[in-house]
Design a protein around this nucleic acid. Structure first.
Length: 308
DNA sequence: AAGACGAAAGTGGTTGA
DNA sequence: TCAACAACTTTCGTCTT
């Protein structure tokens, strides 16, 4: 692409994220899909002979997981075909058809409802389409594996969405998902863990830097403050202050310090609220940051400036 | 008076026997 | 399966601006 889009037309955010795999550019602040036509023209296979080419080429209706039957459908035997068959075989096919019908309607009815719910929550959170698709895929798998049994459909939807967000590095906090779906935070977390474990979905621990952009914009902090916060985060990671800690807490603390240094002071309360952690957590992380990264001088500088 | 700080007790989840 | 444990929260009292 000759020219990169620098700002999100929706919210003016500068934190755009190019996901080549999905062919999209996403604004991490508001989730808007800024550009979805990053077409990859290269062919990912080579053709040696007609046979191989036949197998690898694909055409057909596009498949999507946000349709309950993925845009495809299977029915056992068409009626017209069945009457051509003899007695025994015909009976067998009728039995199969009946079972197919029973199983598929049960699953499909559930899926239809669930996907409607999924779309609702997803649009409430302004999640990009790619995340919605992923979540739908995860949910479909969960249903097929019978993981919904004993759990409410809504909580599994929320869990799937959360997992999809994490995989696409479009982080939403558990609190936000909880609010959007009306499911308790604990429950969302529980089903999230359950579903990812059962389906063997590996999720990289979320990077605190991913949260900075969104927190900063809801606190109306400047771009310098934001990049300083990311800088602090990097140092913190090298000092091994980040492992084992909640990423939102770290992100919040880094942002708080960075705001102090740039004279854009926000109270711990304010930062804590947007990050969905408590002031105490911010204080703890904040203290650690000061201890290990000697940022004291930076803060003192600001204080001196103020006195003048 | 509001915000920052710190101690203490409680919660939910992970881990290791 | 249970107890120890770490991270985080809630609550509350004290200090600072």
């Amino acid at each position: 692409m000759a020219e990169m889009i620098k700002k999100c037309p929706e919210c003016g955010g500068i934190n755009l994220f190019a996901n080549k795999e999905k062919g999209e550019v996403i604004c991490k602040d508001c989730g808007l899909v800024v550009e979805d036509k990053m077409v990859d023209f290269t062919q990912e296979w080579r053709e040696f002979d007609d046979d191989g080419a036949e197998k690898r080429r694909r055409t057909g209706a596009p498949m999507t997981y946000t349709q309950y039957d993925q845009g495809l459908g299977t029915e056992v035997g068409q009626k017209a075909d069945l009457y051509k068959l003899g007695g025994k075989v015909k009976n067998k096919f009728f039995r199969l058809r009946k079972w197919q019908y029973r199983i598929s309607t049960a699953i499909e009815r559930n899926l239809k409802l669930a996907l409607a719910e999924l779309k609702r929550v997803s649009s409430y959170l302004k999640l990009p389409k790619s995340v919605e698709e992923e979540a739908a895929r995860i949910y479909t798998q969960a249903v097929q594996r019978g993981l919904v049994r004993g759990r409410s459909m809504e909580s599994v939807v929320a869990g799937s969405l959360y997992a999809a967000c994490r995989r696409h590095e479009v982080p939403r906090t558990l609190d936000e998902l909880s609010e959007a779906s009306g499911i308790e935070k604990k429950e969302v977390g529980r089903t999230y863990r359950f579903v990812t474990r059962e389906l063997g979905i590996t999720i990289l621990p979320s990077n605190p830097a991913d949260y900075i952009a969104r927190f900063a914009s809801s606190l109306k902090l400047s771009a310098e403050t934001q990049s300083k916060a990311v800088e602090i985060l990097e140092k913190a990671q090298k000092a091994e202050l980040t492992s084992g800690r909640g990423p939102t807490g770290i992100a919040a603390a880094a942002l708080y310090v960075s705001a102090l240094i740039h004279g854009e002071k926000r109270t711990q309360r304010e930062v804590a609220d947007v990050a969905g952690v408590t002031e105490v957590t911010i204080r703890n992380r904040y203290k650690e940051l000061l201890d290990k990264l000697d940022l004291e001088k930076d803060i003192k500088k600001v204080k001196k400036k103020k006195r003048k």
